[in-house]
Amino acid sequence: DATRCSICQKTGEVLHEVSNGSVVHRLCSDSCFSKFRANK
């Protein structure tokens, strides 16, 4: 199964994995990581 970025939905390489309870968010770049943090 292809890994997909939680923010931009791009498949491919994942730079960050953030687990939040039972959910793991995968983020492909620092910019997506920043957006993820801002959205929480």
Rank of each mutant, 00 (worst) to 15 (best):
S31A: 10
S22L: 07
C28Y: 00
V18Y: 03
D30Q: 10
L15I: 12
D1W: 03
G21R: 04
T11E: 09
N20R: 09
K40P: 09
F36M: 05
F36R: 06
L15C: 11
E17V: 03
S6R: 06
R4S: 04
S29K: 02
R26W: 07
N20G: 07
V18Q: 06
Q9D: 05
V24M: 13
S34Y: 00
F36D: 10
C32L: 01
L27R: 04
R37Q: 14
A2Y: 04
S19H: 06
Q9P: 02
C32F: 00
Q9K: 11
G21Y: 04
V24L: 10
K35W: 01
F33C: 09
F33H: 13
R37G: 14
A2V: 02
K40V: 14
V18E: 08
A38G: 12
V24C: 07
A2F: 15
E17Q: 09
H16L: 02
T3L: 10
A38F: 06
E13K: 11
E17N: 05
N39D: 06
S19I: 09
S19Q: 13
S29L: 01
V18A: 08
E13P: 06
G21E: 12
S19D: 10
L27T: 10
T3S: 11
R26S: 08
V24H: 11
K35L: 09
S29H: 01
C8E: 01
F36A: 13
I7M: 07
R26F: 08
S22Q: 12
I7Q: 14
H25W: 06
V23A: 10
V18S: 08
C32H: 02
D30C: 00
S6Q: 05
K35P: 03
S31E: 14
T3D: 10
S29D: 04
H16W: 00
K10C: 04
C8V: 00
A38D: 09
E13M: 10
T11S: 05
K10E: 10
I7P: 01
K10Q: 07
S19G: 09
F36W: 15
C32K: 01
T11Y: 12
R26Q: 14
V14T: 11
S6W: 08
V24E: 11
C28H: 01
T11V: 03
S29A: 04
D1T: 15
S31N: 10
F36G: 07
C5W: 00
R4G: 07
Q9A: 02
R26I: 08
K10P: 00
A2L: 14
V18I: 10
C32G: 02
C32T: 02
S31W: 07
F33Q: 15
G12R: 08
T11N: 09
C8M: 00
D1H: 15
S34M: 11
H16A: 04
S6I: 12
R26H: 10
D1F: 07
V23Q: 15
D30N: 01
G21W: 01
L15Y: 08
H16E: 11
C5Q: 00
S6K: 06
G21P: 04
G12S: 09
H25T: 11
F33W: 15
S34Q: 15
K40C: 15
C8Q: 00
C8A: 00
F33M: 15
K10H: 00
S29I: 00
N20M: 12
V24N: 09
T3V: 04
C8N: 01
T3F: 08
S22Y: 05
F33D: 12
L15Q: 14
Q9R: 05
G12M: 10
D1L: 10
N20H: 11
S19C: 05
F36V: 10
C8I: 00
K10M: 06
Q9H: 07
L15K: 14
E13H: 07
S31V: 11
K40N: 15
V23P: 04
C5R: 00
L15W: 07
N39R: 14
H25I: 07
K35Y: 08
G21S: 07
L27P: 03
H16Y: 03
L27F: 12
A38V: 06
S6G: 06
N39H: 07
G21V: 02
S6T: 14
R37A: 12
S22C: 02
R26D: 02
V24A: 11
V14A: 08
D30M: 05
L27Y: 11
T3C: 01
D1P: 05
A2Q: 15
G12T: 10
F36P: 07
V14E: 03
E13Y: 03
S29M: 02
H16R: 09
S31M: 12
K40Q: 15
D1G: 15
T11M: 08
A38P: 04
K40I: 12
R37L: 05
V14C: 03
N20V: 05
V24P: 08
R37W: 05
V14Q: 08
R26L: 07
R26N: 07
C32A: 03
K35S: 12
S6N: 07
G12W: 02
F33S: 12
A2P: 06
G12Y: 08
S31G: 13
C28A: 02
D30F: 02
S22D: 03
V23S: 12
G12V: 09
S31K: 14
C5Y: 00
V14L: 04
C8G: 00
Q9S: 09
E13D: 07
N39Y: 07
D30E: 11
R37I: 03
G12E: 10
A38L: 06
S31I: 13
R26T: 11
V23E: 14
K40L: 10
V24D: 09
S34E: 15
K10I: 03
H16S: 05
N39K: 15
I7E: 04
A2T: 15
K40S: 14
N39M: 13
E17K: 10
E13S: 07
D1N: 14
S6F: 12
G12P: 02
V24W: 05
C8Y: 01
H25G: 08
A38N: 03
G12C: 14
C5M: 03
C32Y: 03
K40A: 11
C28L: 00
D30T: 07
H16G: 05
T11Q: 08
H25L: 06
D1E: 15
C28W: 00
S29E: 05
C28F: 00
C8P: 00
Q9Y: 12
N39T: 14
A2S: 15
L27G: 05
V18D: 07
V23F: 12
F33E: 15
K10R: 10
C5E: 00
V14D: 06
V23M: 14
E17H: 05
R37H: 14
V18K: 06
R4P: 04
S29C: 02
G21T: 04
T11D: 09
S29W: 01
A2I: 15
S6M: 04
D30W: 00
R37T: 13
H25C: 01
R4V: 08
V23G: 12
K40W: 09
F33L: 15
Q9T: 07
L27Q: 05
A38E: 12
F36Y: 06
S19V: 09
K10Y: 03
F36H: 11
V18R: 04
A2M: 15
L15T: 08
C28S: 01
K40D: 14
E13C: 00
L15E: 06
G21M: 06
F33R: 14
L15A: 08
N20L: 08
Q9I: 02
V23T: 14
L15P: 11
V24Q: 13
D30L: 04
L27D: 02
Q9L: 06
K40T: 14
G21K: 07
S6D: 05
C8K: 00
L27V: 06
E17T: 10
C8F: 01
I7N: 15
K40M: 08
H16D: 04
T3Y: 11
D30H: 03
S19R: 10
N20A: 10
L15S: 13
S29R: 01
R4W: 02
A2H: 13
F36N: 01
N39G: 12
N39A: 12
I7Y: 14
H16K: 08
V23C: 00
L15F: 10
D1A: 08
V24I: 10
F33G: 11
C5P: 00
F33N: 12
S19W: 06
N20S: 10
E13A: 11
V24T: 11
H25P: 04
N20C: 03
V23W: 01
H25S: 09
F33T: 10
V23D: 14
A38S: 07
H25K: 12
C32N: 01
T11R: 05
K10T: 05
S34P: 09
F36E: 13
F33V: 12
D1M: 14
D1Q: 06
I7H: 06
S6Y: 13
H16F: 07
N20I: 13
G21L: 05
S6E: 09
T11P: 03
N39W: 08
